[in-house]
Nucleic acid binder design. Structure first.
Lengths: 130, 130
DNA sequence: CCCTTATTAAGAATATTTACTAATAAAAAT
DNA sequence: ATTTTTATTAGTAAATATTCTTAATAAGGG
């Protein structure tokens, strides 16, 4: 059975506190600030465990380390091609991505991970010259 | 300007030949079979270049190396939770994932990458006990 | 309180990818 | 066709990201 440890509490709280889609390394540093002895491997293992339990969400990023997100409400993510950061974007509730693939008796679809690509608000406005 | 080299031809042909979503390492080995002197770094660089040109597609996989795919026709990908392999799944043409996020003047969406999770045909049938 | 065993710290190891450098070769210019 | 320019390459080192290993610790059931 899973045990509740100080380390798990610290990692989860760090993900919630850093609500800017932190990487494992950033979470490690944040945890380290409060509890110096925590090991990097422990943070990685706990992040995997929390993602497995769906208490947090793992975001695959094409160029670099995975990001993590506190899943408080359903939303998508956008990676800015310009500044490379990850942003939340709204979800239209009634639309579900699963309607985009046909039903079948062969395979079963249980979920998906999606990352939108584009230009964020700041970079978009910055590049508009006027 | 980009140059056409033997190495690029070999890498592209290997991706087309290995139509099973090979990793960079698998592509490297396939290329190596035909042209021993090709370097691993060259294969990685060319794969990045081809993906940039959208001649091939990069598939981000949560547990391991990226996969690549010869983009002959539009389709999605499914990773089997059981055997971990990547499979093609059909796309319903008239449905577009972009309708799932609202329009806005703030950010711009130029694309997305998606990976469905589930159970593939073989694993699904194998686990059905009868 | 004791026992079982999940969890941990620390660092080594692995996996994946990119950077570096001198040599090579594609294709533009002559 | 020859020269020139510079993108590309092989080979290796290095960087990055993550997991494994091991002995020690501690959570939580009995």
């Amino acid at each position: 059975m899973l045990r509740n440890t100080i380390q798990k509490k610290l990692v989860y709280e760090a993900v919630v506190r850093l609500n800017d889609h932190p990487t494992a390394e950033e979470i490690y540093k944040e945890v380290k600030n409060r509890h110096t002895s925590v090991s990097r491997a422990t943070v990685y293992r706990i992040l995997n465990q929390l993602a497995e339990q769906q208490l947090i969400l793992r975001i695959q990023v094409p160029d670099g380390a995975d990001s993590f997100d506190h899943t408080n409400y359903p939303h998508y993510h956008l990676q800015c091609a310009c500044c490379r950061r990850i942003f939340d974007i709204q979800k239209i509730a009634q639309e579900d991505i699963r309607v985009c693939v046909p039903d079948t008796k062969d395979y079963r679809i249980t979920g998906y991970s999606i990352l939108f690509k584009g230009i964020c608000k700041q970079c978009n406005h910055k590049n508009t010259l006027e």
